[in-house]
Design a protein around this nucleic acid. Structure first.
Lengths: 241, 241
DNA sequence: CTCTTGCAAACCGACCGGCGGTCTGCAAAT
DNA sequence: ATTTGCAGACCGCCGGTCGGTTTGCAAGAG
């Protein structure tokens, strides 16, 4: 009889533990390449134990996604519930949300997270995450634009469409960001850095123009972003695992 | 001994046949849910036969993708090789490419194709396809914008970034298009149709503004697009397969 | 207060069907 | 005779199931 030792845990705790292990593995190996068994091994739990808490591997994915979205939305609620500020102030708070979050939460770690999430194998993960952020942010931004149009600050034909377009745009710089991150330490780093700055500038200039605002009204809210990004550590050379 | 009848074919023909069967299945069931065996059954060929022509299931996907991209790029080459027209004329040709293609190639069929491609299960397929189109279109659009900036027609800070942003934008209306397509025949159809028109208008207005052109310079090139779209046949009710 | 006793929740791990992919061998074509 | 196209048994692995076991805890007995 060689039954391994067993340690019961309250459901919430187990769930969180499994989600944590899954997140680590999903980020490093991608969702498709991560086996349920991988998660089990890392968490030290059995198949039966796992399927007692999760009804499928997909539920794991959604759980991880929810956890990621939580951090993003917690900041957004503050903007959403602000009833006093002007539309312009709210808009700037909104466009600064991401920069603030990045700056205050271990930026190098987030860069690496972003890099891994953008690998082909994590396409599903990334796209689902983007969708959640869009869905969650839509009502907040709509409200801001509506308010600005009502008081004449913004000049825009259709509030919902404008909000959707701006949210759509809000990931444009990510393309350049990804290239810049991957160019760190190579001889194309400077070029990529300039392109990143251009992409950031153009993204916010475009937001201004969509709303009929003078150029320079909105911005990323983090002037040193490019420099800080290029200064983060490139990942170690790929090992043969 | 019950060996089934065999019918040898030249490699090119078999490949195309398998690709055709794969496309049908990928579109209807999605890539992940389509088994290699499904393709074999539909084509009437064996595992060995299949793997004689394709080294993996992924190669099938890329093959299908290449076939799809071919049609798109054939049109683009005409614009790319036009040396005489003005930058503005070229830009309008470029923005009209998609509408022209849609109008001239069985639009209802393409609507259904678009609808299926946007289902969750086809996320990988869609994203890879978008990437290919972007990559192929980038040099063409860059050249147009460069020309327009050189002769003073366009007012833009960074040519590459502008081209990338416009290509990025060129799928914005797809969000509204998808919702409109899925609203056909329901009581929200009118609302969705208006939103689609708003999205189209805003997309091209934004392109104008990015390039410093007066509103209305670029357009989709197909005024009746929304009406025609809403008039296409909704899909039959889902069967239990 | 301690000690059974009962039981639901937590957990184990062998097992299953089906997947993508390999391999040996044969038949058709040249 | 040699090469090319193909058949189908086979393999390892994956996600998911299932019958049984262990654990924690609360209620009743002494």
């Amino acid at each position: 009889m060689k039954t391994t030792k067993r340690k019961n845990m309250p459901p919430k705790e187990r769930r969180d533990q499994l989600l944590g292990c899954a997140q680590i593995l999903f980020f490093s190996k991608g969702f498709e390449d991560t086996t349920v068994q991988d998660v089990l091994d890392l968490a030290g739990v059995s198949k039966g134990g796992f399927y007692h808490h999760f009804k499928s591997k997909d539920e794991l994915l959604f759980g991880v996604l929810d956890g990621m979205a939580e951090g993003v939305f917690s900041q957004m609620d503050l903007v959403a519930s602000d009833e006093t500020s002007s539309a312009l102030k709210l808009l700037r708070s909104f466009t600064h949300l991401r920069a603030n979050y990045l700056r205050e939460h271990d930026y190098p770690g987030q860069v690496e997270f972003f890099r891994v999430m953008n690998q082909d194998k994590n396409l599903v993960l990334l796209e689902q995450f983007k969708r959640r952020v869009r869905t969650g942010a839509m009502p907040v931004l709509t409200r801001i634009i509506q308010k600005g149009r009502d008081d004449g600050t913004f000049n825009v034909a259709d509030v919902d469409t404008a909000a959707e377009l701006i949210l759509f745009l809000s990931t444009f710089m990510d393309l350049a960001l990804l290239r810049a991150i991957e160019a760190r330490g190579t001889d194309t780093a400077d070029h990529a850095a300039r392109n990143l700055q251009a992409a950031i500038d153009m993204q916010f200039q475009t937001i201004d123009r969509i709303l009929g605002l003078p150029d320079g009204t909105t911005d990323f809210g983090w002037p040193e972003a490019v420099d800080v990004t290029m200064a983060t550590e490139p990942p170690p050379p790929p090992s043969i695992n």
